[in-house]
């Protein structure tokens, strides 16, 4: 009796979550714990950190993000077209050309 692949994915999600979590928990138990004021400061080349990293900063690449959004949706529409590509014939090809 073949198993539904979605069942496999669901079971895997549970097992897969346990797999990296288990050694992390073991590590939390057996690893030494010796926090210090200096040691726990975020790394900034040894100097006292200046300013707040959670403040405003310039996202240089937001343009790329916007273009990506447009083209990624286009790519999503390409997938169903690609599956039926051989049935759609030259007209389908032309229509997709116009769409792109």
């Amino acid at each position: 009796m073949p198993t539904d692949p979605l069942v496999v994915v669901a079971v895997f999600a549970v097992l897969g979550l346990a797999f990296p979590a288990a050694p992390l928990i073991v590590s939390q138990i057996i690893a030494p714990r010796n926090p210090g004021k200096e040691k726990n400061r975020p790394y900034e080349c040894g100097t006292v950190e200046a300013g707040d990293p959670w403040g405003q900063f310039k996202i240089q690449f937001y343009m790329y993000g916007l273009i990506f959004l447009v083209f990624d949706i286009e790519a999503l529409f390409l997938f169903p077209w690609a599956v039926v590509f051989k049935l759609a014939g030259p007209l389908g090809l032309l229509e997709m050309l116009v769409f792109i």
């Binding site: 690893a31 726990n40 975020p42």
Partner: peptide, 13 residues
């Protein structure tokens, strides 16, 4: 070695 290492969470994280 990785399992035995101390886990450091920076202040404010």
């Amino acid at each position: 070695k990785m399992i035995l290492k101390e886990d450091i969470i920076p202040v404010g994280a």
